[in-house]
Design a protein around this nucleic acid. Structure first.
Length: 420
RNA sequence: GCGAGCGUCGCCCAGUUGGUCAAGGCGCCAGAUUGUGGAUCUGGAGAUCACGGGUUCGAGUCCCGUCGCUCGCCCCA
């Protein structure tokens, strides 16, 4: 026996019929996006690794320990994308798509890669859908993107998820918050977990989403971002909340929600789903007003989110939500001997010519076995061709749902099926 | 990177204190009178019990190692 291979750790093969479920999620997402005027964008699976280091932030876990980095044959440092936004911003800048009073609204469906130990809801190659909206500064865009995000889940039928919302401030108000936070934390520094002590140097905000009970307790009374918002950030946030309420999109204020990417400004949100286990985030999003400039483009605000496909699927399963199944359709054309098999193949081809699904047997099976196969294929019709049929020129067409049979002139079968 | 559990036919899995040990279900194939599916019945194919060592008269069952999977920590989709 030759050596056999397995899919790499943390990757998965998506086989039928599960692939139908994936297709359903994707097509639903496309439909929702188009409703909001978003168009599809596709960017490379790998980019210069510097793009991610610069865009996402050197100090983030994603960049510091989870990237699939490799050197290409030209000695350039490349990385499999660990998330979608950086590459799309790069494309936006590269193709000079910025313009005054214009918005570039795109959606995507992509694989992302992170070198981590896989567990429930977490993979090394994961899949996300998401949108990005470049241009608008105002909270209307925030509200629209969040609404789109929630519309997808609604359309899928997912229930029991929770939208959590925060505002992280902007370069005007952040420094004062950061300083206040650092001061508050340094008083209790010794009681923080080792990781958080390190975070105090790199990004004190991240202490907020530490899961250690001690850090949580210490941070509970620490100054939150919303308390330090400048006047503009305040009114932006207030307006957004007003819009969400007016759209009847319930949310929970999450003053300690900070997200793991450095580029977010002002609005940040995530959607949690309690049934998911340790990885309870269905998606994450936020505004990134400084990112385009950071990546060499003209100062352009942006906002977007990314949602995990695997996690949405899991939520669907947990909720016992059935996706629309395939109803019985299509035809198996059965031939019984050499000559009728030949005719069966030609007839199937002619049925396909009418835009209908048709198949034939490949294994020289008998009538009974072929009927059984028709059933397994989920076919609606079986068309039988044997010696008698070839002689009379009339095929037996059997409706597998009702069991009714009729004789139809062989050449009329495609049209007959088309009308049926 | 760390911790825990698991690894028996394509799939789900039984295998008691080590001695008919390779069982059952699903699926697959073939029959149940002559050219007909989905139900039932009968039969059949299919497993060197993840891999490599060790203990023992004897190991799927005990020990060690390797690989893999799963769950958790960190963090996130």
């Amino acid at each position: 026996m030759a050596k056999s291979y397995q899919a790499p750790r943390g990757t998965q093969d998506i086989l039928p019929p599960v692939s139908d479920r994936w297709h359903h999620l994707e097509s639903t997402f496309r439909k929702v996006c188009e409703r909001y005027g978003y168009q599809e964008v596709r960017t490379p699976v790998f980019e210069e690794s510097g793009l991610f280091a610069r865009g996402i932030g050197d100090a983030t876990d994603i960049v510091s320990k989870e990237m699939y980095v490799f050197e290409d044959r030209g000695g350039r440092s490349m990385a499999l994308r660990p998330e979608g936004t950086a590459g799309i911003v790069r494309a936006f800048v590269e193709h000079k798509l910025a313009g005054e009073k214009s918005a570039w609204k795109v959606f995507y469906f992509m694989s992302i890669f992170r070198y981590e130990r896989p567990q429930a809801g977490r993979y090394r190659q994961a899949h996300q859908v998401g949108v990005e909206c470049f241009g608008p500064t105002g909270p209307d865009a925030d509200a629209e993107v969040i609404a789109l995000n929630m519309a997808w889940y609604r359309e899928l039928g997912i229930r029991g998820h929770e939208l959590r919302l925060n505002s992280l401030g902007c370069p005007v108000c952040r420094p004062s918050h950061r300083q206040a936070l650092s001061e508050a934390l340094s008083e209790v520094r010794g009681d923080l977990c080792p990781t958080c002590q390190g975070r105090m140097e790199t990004n004190p905000l991240r202490v907020f989403d530490c899961k250690s009970a001690e850090c949580q307790a210490l941070v509970a009374s620490a100054p939150s971002t919303v308390d330090y918002l400048c006047a503009e950030c305040q009114s932006h946030f207030a307006r957004l909340r007003d819009l969400l309420e007016a759209m009847e999109l319930p949310y929970e204020l999450a003053p300690r929600l900070v997200r793991g990417l450095d580029y977010y400004t002002r609005t940040a949100w995530e959607v949690k789903y309690s049934g998911l286990g340790a990885q309870d985030a269905l998606c994450g999003g936020g505004r990134y007003d400084g990112l385009v400039e950071e990546l060499g483009g003209p100062a352009t605000p942006g906002i977007g989110f990314a949602a995990g496909i695997e996690r949405a699927l899991y939520a669907l399963e947990q909720g016992g939500i059935e996706i629309p199944g395939r109803s019985a359709r299509g035809t198996l054309v059965i031939g019984l001997d050499e000559e009728s098999r030949r005719r069966a193949l030609l007839l199937a081809e002619s049925i396909r010519g009418h835009g209908l699904r048709a198949e034939t047997d490949y294994f020289d099976r008998g009538l009974k076995a072929q009927m059984k196969q028709a059933d397994r294929l989920g076919a609606r019709w079986a068309v039988i061709l044997g010696e008698d049929e070839l002689k009379t020129g009339r095929a037996v067409v059997r409706d597998l749902e009702s069991g009714d049979q009729s004789e139809v002139p062989i050449d009329d079968v495609p049209g007959w099926l088309d009308r049926a």
